[in-house]
Design a protein around this nucleic acid. Structure first.
Lengths: 349, 349
DNA sequence: CTGTTAGCGCGTTCAT
DNA sequence: ATGAACGCGCTAACAG
């Protein structure tokens, strides 16, 4: 008989040791009232002495009212998602909910797996930022809906999705950013996007095209799909920069893409904004250390996180039946990485 | 009678609908063998039709053998921790374990709360990188030990801690980095550290002092505690750079500190490495886009993640009784942000 | 191969 | 105020 066989003390063990019934012990340890001070003390003592740890799983199971919320994120490397997670966790904790974080790593299969896992944990609600658009996640999402689990989806979804959604108005923000570039005299503006399979990325690309079209610059439109990783974006940008008729401005569709593009610009030995202007959709902490400071489009992360949580609360309390679609406005932060387009002669030289 | 009253189907419901016993249904749905193809198909059909979702919590409870591992992280903003999480999640999934991620946000109280939550979820094991050294987490950690839950601690711990630990040899790496600076002719080297309350930060500071001492530079030793956030590090660095006898080199103790210091250098309009050299303990993806590319000390993240998991596996299978202390060696990556110290006259001028 | 049954640890009636 | 007993959804052990 090994020492490790000594099983962890259960509620019954504590009750026995304190010489009270399990019912009484349960009341004391779950903080309910209606127990004499004397017996309550005995229970606490016994619990502490035996190193009792309440089995939250069993409690949830019995109560049938889970206390945790699942959050499935596509990529922890992206500060935007991390900020969302931080905001949500704070809100959840304040309302007595625990957040179960799951990480899909931009892998659709793993995402499905993670969603199923979270569901199997009997969460009270689920918040999902899908990793490959809802086309792929569709199946797992449908399962969640069938189980009547309150579901909020964010960021990489749009209003047509049959779930509660919280998004950023990517299209108009992107158009505004592009207009800013055009106003500076740029014509050859390339738009770098991770993948057009992602709804929000697609919207950003559309916003770019809207603005180009409005300025009669259709012939200059150049949307380049360059993959989900910084390494891929790096390679793609390198190719763009080395081609003839190099763009005078780059508009990167997200955080990660920006990172890769910057590496390429660095490798190509180009100066920002003298040789090429750069506008980034998505802000990130590290951008502030760059010289020049990057001009970027910032999504209102806190507001988005707050909205997601408020929506979830309503859903949890049953105050909300039909699907709601919330949209937020991103903000263009003009800083130092965008400047007037170089004169044509300078470019060709 | 509201529609939402319709309860989610349970294993028994499925069994009834498929006209088999719960035992049979359980076997089918948990992928066990020993059921005729015909009945198995009936069960699957019924399950699909009714939108059955297995209650993993109840299963774990009954089986008494949990399938999830808790991971408590101090800060998702720091790429180092995120990399660890990614590595661990991959390993865990490959071995049939699910990772429950919890985030302390560098807040000791929340950390305690999160550790308790993870414990209450009856995890098979727990991995924690403490947020304020083990002094503060001590209590929650002790609880974990009392419950005989396999525990691996990493990064911000040392060999004296009564738990399994996986660490980086911060002290020697830091000494090596400092020596590199000294070899370049630097004397006034300031060491910026988040807080000396963190063991690993303290070790890094000690390594710095070791090297300074070996070079008879004791009078130049300057260790500055500047807090956990980039904003605080920014402010501290600004003060250092504006003082008389400005250091010719800065050695930042971690990722976040580096970020703040860079902002300050930018604000002070100083050139790296002409005016000031910069060495960063911890590498990060965004450093590669800087001009100049930062010289840094890189911890072997993958190896560390792998080691943590291997240790956890041994613990889970009961092959490991006493505490193990693993240590890894960090690597100095000399790049462009460290150069020869400017001549004395140039500095004072 | 299949069905029956006894709990896993806990919260919650309902008597007392 | 207190304790006994039931069952949450599921698995495992056993009997057929």
């Amino acid at each position: 008989m090994r020492v490790s066989d000594r099983t962890v003390p259960t509620l019954r063990d504590v009750a026995n040791a304190a010489e009270v019934s399990v019912g009484t012990a349960s009341k004391v340890l779950s903080g309910a009232s209606g127990v004499s001070a004397e017996r309550a003390r005995r229970v606490w003592d016994a619990a502490r002495r035996m190193g009792y740890r309440r089995n939250g799983i069993a409690a949830d199971l019995r109560r049938g009212r889970p206390t945790s919320i699942g959050l499935v994120l596509p990529d922890l490397t992206n500060p935007f998602f991390v900020d969302i997670a931080r905001a949500l966790e704070t809100h959840a904790l304040q309302h007595g909910y625990q957040l179960i974080l799951a990480h899909a790593g931009e892998d659709p299969e793993r995402e499905t797996e993670r969603i199923r896992f979270v569901m199997s944990r009997q969460v009270a609600g689920m918040i999902v930022i899908p990793c490959s658009g809802y086309q792929r996640a569709q199946h797992a999402i449908a399962e969640a809906r069938e189980c009547h689990v309150p579901l909020v989806m964010a960021d990489r979804v749009d209003d047509t999705f049959p779930a509660n959604t919280v998004t950023t108005n990517s299209r108009s923000a992107s158009a505004e950013g592009t207009a800013h570039l055009i106003a500076l005299g740029h014509k050859r503006i390339a738009f770098l996007v991770n993948t057009l399979k992602l709804v929000n990325s697609r919207e950003r690309a559309e916003g770019y095209m809207d603005a180009m079209h409005n300025a009669n610059l259709d012939t200059y439109v150049s949307v380049v799909e360059c993959g989900m990783t910084a390494a891929q974006s790096h390679a793609a940008t390198l190719k763009i920069l080395s081609g003839s008729m190099r763009p005078t401005a780059l508009f990167t569709g997200c955080n990660v893409t920006t990172l890769g593009a910057l590496r390429a610009i660095r490798d190509a030995d180009l100066r920002i904004p003298l040789d090429v202007s750069l506008l980034s959709f998505d802000d990130a902490p590290w951008m502030s250390v760059l010289r020049p400071y990057l001009t970027s489009i910032r999504q209102p992360v806190e507001a988005i996180g707050h909205a997601i949580w408020q929506l979830m609360l309503k859903l949890l309390s049953g105050q909300q039946d039909e699907c709601v679609h919330l949209s937020f406005t991103a903000e263009l932060l003009v800083r130092e990485s965008t400047a007037h387009a170089p004169a044509e002669t300078a470019v060709s030289g």
